[in-house]
Design a protein around this nucleic acid. Sequence first.
DNA 1: AAGTGGTCTAGACCACTAT
DNA 2: TAGTGGTCTAGACCACTTC
Lengths: 242, 242
Amino acid sequence: MITRNPSLTDQVKAHIKEQIVNDEFADGRIPPEATLAEDLGVSRTTIRDALGKLEHEGAIYRKQGAGTFVNQAGLQIKSRLEEIWSYEQVLEDHGYKPSVRVLTDEIFPVNPETAEALQLDEGDEVLVIEKVFLENSTPVVLTRNRIPAALLLGSDRKRKDLPIYEYLEEYCDRRLSYYLSEIVPVSLDADQAAKLGVKEGTLGLSFVEVGYDQNNEAIVHATSYFRDDLLRFRLIRRRAGA
Amino acid sequence: MITRNPSLTDQVKAHIKEQIVNDEFADGRIPPEATLAEDLGVSRTTIRDALGKLEHEGAIYRKQGAGTFVNQAGLQIKSRLEEIWSYEQVLEDHGYKPSVRVLTDEIFPVNPETAEALQLDEGDEVLVIEKVFLENSTPVVLTRNRIPAALLLGSDRKRKDLPIYEYLEEYCDRRLSYYLSEIVPVSLDADQAAKLGVKEGTLGLSFVEVGYDQNNEAIVHATSYFRDDLLRFRLIRRRAGA
DNA sequence: AAGTGGTCTAGACCACTAT
DNA sequence: TAGTGGTCTAGACCACTTC
């Protein structure tokens, strides 16, 4: 059944992706764009947009003049760094059964680092939400999110365990559009190590990031720490401009 | 002057990017797509493709129904992780004057890890090129590239200091298409620390990656180590599927 | 020479934002 | 309601690979 929303392109993308994971293409060769367009009853442009997205996420590769092919190596990637949104989802993708524990959920005066990241003034307040994501009872990810208190709409913020982007939609009516992230290797301090269940000084990876909404306003300052022994991030690096 | 190659889209993109960095758009507002199309004498599709690339690399953002705007925050990013290709270029972008020193350039029997990454057999040989990238006389990046010896075309490989993708084109006639990379925090061992001019055990970031050519054949296994105090990597994380 | 992906056009209509 | 970006179509021609 063809409907708008999800877009035709996304439907086509999902359809082809399904055939890929079900290994329905002989020799890993995907049919020509013109054939796909005719078979699915859409324009070649729509097919090309869908294939473009699949190529970008590493599921396929294309060779001008030759054809389009399944990319087995790319399909192995579980967590694509550029697309990580919910850590529960990431853990699920790794085959874990994730759970969340909220450690902190309080309003504090902003610290200088967050004030700069979120363009706040000294003395402004932020809501600090600290959470741990666990697989079974093993902590894997520790996050600290800071949201300007001025953005909060009501005081009945019950679902503290929501993914932060859902929390922002629910209680601030802001839609998180993208993160600008910095990747930093860290030696976990006593507090962080305790919360992640490892020894102080253990090596870990961390993100320091600022989240923006559709109006390009900074709405969240996030810091995340990962157990490197349990979670590895991968990404595809391409030639600039491609 | 309008010519093919670079594509119209890339010419349009470069043109708009230049106007952005020269701050030629009042209020950071970029003209409507229809206007750009008419002014530049191309179709709206071409304009949209160009704007799409600029949006993807963080230079602009778009709001349906409202317009297209310059993204000041995104413009600040120097090294976009997904697009890093030459470390000399990265160091230049950070305002450094880079230089390269080749530490190793020899053929060895393949080790098990590389054999698996490049689908080689035990006993096959690889060319190992180890290089350090320096700013002035300070080491910043240490890389080790391993190329299957079977790919080498001749024996007069003089330019060992070429970026590895150029080396592969020059001496193997293979075009590097993309890297599949894993990000790993490390405590530098004695050898690595010495080559980077820091104390053993210093915290660093590393990439472990496999490079593929257009036929999706693995052609290089690379390991890189970075001085975290001198080089930070950033990236833009977006909602999956967007 | 035949087939395939890459680029580009011109135009239609929809969804959303601003006023 | 007017203006803007988002999606989609149908078709043309080019560049490259394969045989």
